[in-house]
Design a protein around this nucleic acid. Structure first.
Length: 201
DNA sequence: CACCAGGTTGACC
DNA sequence: GGTCAACATGGT
């Protein structure tokens, strides 16, 4: 099955997902950290709390009292390390505004993001794709599961290379495809009901 | 009560 | 190179 066929199957079944649900690039960054191993529903609550307290900017978030931040994001779990990571990442985005980031290569940006504590490959690529509009394909746990069902095995780098080399370098396509994989995974790839899979796994 | 959720890290082999 | 527990809350 070709990558584009998989995309079209998912799109037909689920419709456009229109990710990422965020108003600003920095909101994507915050969401990307908070959603690690956490349901989006809880992340949305936390982001709402941050907005209510005018903390959804790099300057505000990096200078807010840490225990205050912890209490606001508690519902996302791992709240102590996430508070620390959010502040480290906020300092980076306070120092490097969007126009200065726009001048860097995707490779350089990715390495800088990966050097920050709390940003691994998936979070870095989510930020690159959904906040900075770079054509990096995001691989998550659902993508790995679905690919395994389809007979495509391998780790993060291998799968990412498979998607990126098989697809046109279209940012909108990358965004929608990843969103579809996650949504499909949530609905059909929970351990007990693989049989409803339209991908014939 | 057990298990999972849009991962990352550091320790250990 | 790979594997593994720890991180913590909230929902089913």
């Amino acid at each position: 099955m070709k990558m584009m066929d998989i995309y079209n199957e998912l799109l037909e079944k689920l419709g456009k997902q229109k990710w990422w649900p965020a108003k600003t690039p920095f909101e994507v960054v915050v969401g990307a950290i908070l959603t690690q191993r956490t349901k989006w529903e809880n992340v949305a609550k936390a982001i709402h709390e941050l907005k209510k307290n005018d903390l959804l900017s790099p300057d505000a978030l990096s200078s807010v009292d840490k225990s205050t931040l912890e209490s606001l994001i508690k519902c996302t779990g791992f709240y102590k390390q996430k508070a620390e990571r959010l502040q480290a990442v906020s300092k980076y985005f306070a120092k490097n505004d969007l126009s200065s980031l726009a001048e860097k290569s995707t490779r350089a940006l990715r390495n800088e993001l990966l050097s920050l504590k709390g940003i691994g490959k998936e979070t870095a690529d989510s930020i690159l794709l959904y906040a900075l509009n770079r054509s990096k394909f995001v691989i998550d746990a659902y993508t790995v599961r679905i690919c395994k069902c389809l007979g495509i095995s391998g780790g993060y780098d291998h799968l990412q290379e498979r998607f990126e080399s098989a697809l046109p370098k279209d940012v909108a396509l990358f965004k929608e495809f990843h969103a579809l994989l996650v949504e499909y995974g949530k609905q059909y790839c929970n351990k007990n009901r693989c049989e409803e899979c339209v991908l014939k796994c």
